[in-house]
Computed example of a mutant assay.
Amino acid sequence: MTVTKQTVRFNAHGLQLAGILNLPQNVANKNAAIVCVHPGSSCKDQTAGIYAEKLAELGFITLAYDASYQGESEGAPRYAEYPTARVEDIRCAIDYLTTLDYVDEDRVGVLGVCAGGGYAVNTAMIERRIKAVGTVVGANIGRVNRQVDPIAVLENIGKQRTAEARGAERMLVNWIPCNHEEREKAGMTDIDLVEAVEYYTTSRGQSPNSPNRLYFPSMSNVIGFDAFHLADQLLTQPLQIIVGDKQGAFGSYQDGHELYNKAASTEKDLFVLEGVSHYDLYDQPEPVRQAVEKLAKFYNKYL
């Protein structure tokens, strides 16, 4: 199905966020719509945009956007990762969709990839306009960043905030190594880190809106965040979880199983793709095809 792409902007907690609205051919009144949420360090033009376009080809209105403080969206300090803002971004994306005459406000879903999956889940707990929740290699970004000496990181963040309050420049760091040479020098051989460098820093997935920069003090907010907190009480919407069984340091396989077991949803499914890694589900044709096919059935049933 032919898809029309529209560049849009919408308000989110006082900021203008940049998005791509994907409209399937022959849009009629009261269509189902899906908000597509990108991973940490990513942008609307990468994996979230791939899923958004493919779901639009199957008849869904989809919206992928750059998170607050990142990409082409507004917000300072630049490159901050604030989980509360990320959750509010999703809610504001839904606000925007409900202003469109051709969107059925009672048929809105959310899809998140990697950290975007965790944010999608966390938002759905407090946002009842979300009727169906999908995650692809969804990860709990707080858990990921609590794995290695979080207290030491928090101590350093405190010192950096003090320095910045006294006039020092804002501290920007990299999410991942800038290239394979840098990764190898650091002795990083885990499959997720290897494939992250391959995806984000080469022609495979590189985007100017995803420059591998992170405002370091914002990581204290990430470390204190638990994407799945209260899922056993508040996450009741239908839930589709998709992971690959090739496990790496980011732990999406682990998080997928934890979320499945914890969620209060009575309609939930965990789909595990054999021989597939975290980043295979970002853009590799066959894993993505299988994921989209599963998601389309899910959203068609519950939206």
Rank of each mutant, 00 (worst) to 15 (best):
N26E: 12
V103P: 03
C114P: 04
D245F: 09
A18R: 10
A296W: 09
V103S: 02
R170W: 11
I94F: 09
C178N: 15
A231H: 06
Y215I: 09
V121N: 06
T202G: 01
A80Q: 07
K262H: 01
Y119M: 13
P211D: 01
Q70P: 10
A231N: 08
G109Q: 07
T62E: 00
E267D: 06
G109A: 12
R129H: 07
E105A: 15
Y69A: 00
A296S: 15
H257V: 12
A18M: 12
V153H: 04
L193A: 10
L97E: 06
R166K: 14
G244Q: 04
S277Q: 09
A152R: 02
R183A: 08
L15A: 08
N140L: 02
T4N: 11
P177L: 05
S73Q: 03
A196K: 05
I90P: 05
G138C: 06
E105F: 15
L281V: 05
S252T: 09
V194P: 08
A64Y: 12
D269C: 00
T7A: 13
H13P: 01
A32V: 02
G138D: 00
S68C: 11
Y102T: 11
G112P: 05
A124G: 15
I191T: 09
D149S: 13
E72I: 08
I34V: 10
Y82Q: 06
H278I: 06
V144F: 10
L58P: 00
I94D: 03
K294P: 08
E293W: 15
P150R: 11
V173H: 04
I157F: 07
H180A: 13
D283T: 04
S41D: 01
C43N: 15
D190R: 00
Y82M: 11
A32K: 04
H13N: 15
R143T: 15
K30N: 13
V144A: 10
G167K: 02
